[in-house]
C-alpha cells in the first residue's frame, strides 16, 4: 500500500513536471519518474520480506528478493547516464533551456553538409546579469 502510494505520488509529480516548458524541469520530472520505476521494481519483489540478502540465511522466507534489487541498481545507473546527457542537452540550446526553441524550425532546412553550410546560432552577447539568490 505505502509503496503503491509513493509510486503514484512520484509519477504524478513527474508527469506534471515533464509537461513543463523548461528542460531542467523536464529533467527533474524524469528523475522522479525514475524513482517511481524503481519503486515499482522493489514492490514487485514483495515488500513484506525485508531482511538484507546476505550469505546463506537460516530463514529464507523473510529475506528480501535480491533480483529486483539488482534490477533497480542497474536502472539507477542507466538513468544517471541519461540524466547527465539530458542536462548537457539543456545547456546547449539557446540562452535558456526552453524546449520550444527550435521546435518549429522547418525540417530539412539547410543541413550541415560536409562543407558546413548551416550556421548555428552562437551564444549571444549581452547576457543578462543574474544574482543567484
Amino acid at each position: 500500500m505505502t509503496v503503491a502510494i509513493t509510486a503514484g505520488v512520484l509519477v504524478a509529480g513527474a508527469v506534471y513536471l515533464f509537461l513543463k516548458r523548461e528542460m531542467l524541469r523536464v529533467i527533474l520530472g524524469f528523475v522522479l519518474l525514475g524513482h517511481a520505476g524503481n519503486m515499482i521494481l522493489m514492490a514487485a519483489g514483495g515488500t513484506s520480506r525485508r531482511a538484507e540478502p546476505f550469505g546463506t540465511p537460516e530463514e529464507p522466507a523473510t529475506v528480501a528478493d535480491p533480483l529486483p534489487q539488482a534490477f533497480v541498481l542497474t536502472a539507477i545507473v542507466i538513468a544517471f547516464s541519461i540524466t547527465i546527457f539530458m542536462l548537457v542537452l539543456s545547456a546547449t540550446g539557446t540562452e535558456n533551456d526552453d524546449t520550444t526553441d527550435g521546435a518549429n524550425d522547418p525540417a530539412n532546412g539547410p543541413t550541415d553538409s560536409a562543407d558546413g553550410t548551416s550556421q548555428p546560432r552562437p551564444a549571444r552577447h549581452g547576457a543578462r546579469t543574474e544574482e543567484h539568490p
Binding site: A4, G8, L10, V11, V15, A36, M39, I40, A43
Partner: peptide, 9 residues
C-alpha cells in the same frame, strides 16, 4: 497517471 500507477502497483 499517478492513480493508474498506484493502482497498478
Amino acid at each position: 497517471a499517478g492513480l493508474a500507477t498506484a493502482a497498478g502497483v
